[in-house]
Simulated scan of single mutants.
Amino acid sequence: MTFAAILSASRASGDSSGALRASLHFAGQTLVEYQARQAARAGADRIMILVSVITPALSQAVDRLSADGIPVALVRDMVSMVRDAPRDTDVLLVADGVVVAQSHFDAMAEREGNALLVTDDSRASAPFERIDAGQRWAGLARVSPDLLFGTLDMIGDWDLSLTLVRAAVQSGARRVTVPQDDLLTGRVALVETQAEADVAAQTVMSSGSRATYVRGLAEHYLLAPLARLASPALMRTQVPTMQVRIAGMALGAIALVPIELLWPATGFFLLLLALLIAEIADRLDELALRLPPSGWAAFVVPFFAVGGISLAGAGVLATCLALLLAIVQVADRWRRTGAARPWMIFTPASALLLLLLTTWVGAFSLGYEVSMLCVIASVGTIILLKRD
């Protein structure tokens, strides 16, 4: 069953009365933008952000979300909420300034009817809103259309989130209790300042899920682990992902120069570094809950890689090797490698690693011959193990 999401973005942060909690920087974007991406990943088909004033940061967040295909709108008053809220689906309510692990979003999305994410009253849960003598609201609530519109009809100037939560409590909504470990580790938190948001973001980045799809040989065993180590530091410095991706493209183009000057080992090393930078950019997108590109931007650095391999070999074997590697790269990026294991997928990065090693030991031609055998075996494996 589809559902909508209502995000609150009106409370001031603890850093400045002029700033909003929702505009705190979090995982390379604003906090409310991250919440919207979580709701969309959980299955929300429309997202409404309830605001008291429309700031440039909120407008830019909406523009970025819309550009990524996430339907989102800013709502300023109860009249607009009554007009825009869906009357045939449940609504997932997200508290202002809350950081909740994606698993809890997914769990609430699977439920139907009124439900509350709660935590037992303790010192760790003190920042959250108390709902009774023993529990506090942990920032997520799923409410039915009847409860939502029944509350909107009588809400006046009251706080929508807290009024809906109290109405859900009075209606006997089911409760999903958050483990205390999630509070202690920061997987569920309420942030009011940028310092608190930074701490919560570090927790998110350190516990971020790995790719759920099969990667190529070099990517799985070398590039992805290195990217997981480097990306949190870049995320904390707020480096835009596109700038990282462009840096990888520029380095890939520069790597062709030493290859043209007959320094293949230097060129291969620079191409591997360019592919690592591209992998880091993908990891930054993953941490920010954005889908890595699958269009031309995803293939610029691999294009330089296969071009460098062809240029360094300067023969029919090198050209054929580059073409086969390009095919494997497209299959790997578009997740069309079937049931092949990572070590079976011989990507351009894998070939560069092998060619770099054979060049250093003085077996340049042998590296191309072995790479050709590996990529042929890889293509055959992908075809033979293709799922129906």
Rank of each mutant, 00 (worst) to 15 (best):
A197W: 06
W334V: 09
F299C: 04
A200P: 05
E33L: 02
A351C: 09
A9W: 08
T358C: 10
S66V: 08
I345G: 03
I259T: 13
G252E: 10
R41G: 00
A61H: 02
V306F: 02
V100H: 00
L261P: 06
V306Q: 03
V79H: 12
L147A: 14
R87Q: 15
L385F: 06
R387I: 07
F128I: 07
D285W: 04
D120A: 14
L354R: 09
L352E: 06
L366K: 01
S59V: 12
D285L: 04
D45R: 08
T185W: 03
R136K: 11
D45F: 03
F268Y: 15
P71E: 07
D96G: 04
A340T: 13
H104M: 08
V370I: 15
V169H: 00
S144E: 10
I70P: 05
F299W: 03
W158I: 08
E110V: 04
L272T: 07
S103H: 11
T241Q: 11
G252Q: 11
W334D: 11
A314G: 02
P86G: 02
P86R: 07
P292G: 00
V257Q: 05
R187A: 10
D182M: 09
G69E: 04
Q135N: 07
A227E: 00
W360Q: 14
A224N: 01
L183S: 04
M81I: 09
V316H: 02
H220L: 04
G18V: 05
S207N: 06
Q38V: 00
A200H: 04
L117N: 09
A339M: 10
S161P: 00
Q202K: 12
G150W: 11
V316Q: 04
L217K: 02
W334A: 13
A318F: 05
A168R: 06
M81D: 03
T2E: 14
A115C: 12
I131G: 03
T359C: 14
R76D: 12
V82T: 15
R166G: 05
D153G: 13
F303A: 15
G134N: 14
F26N: 08
D88G: 09
A101T: 00
I246Q: 11
G69Q: 04
S52W: 01
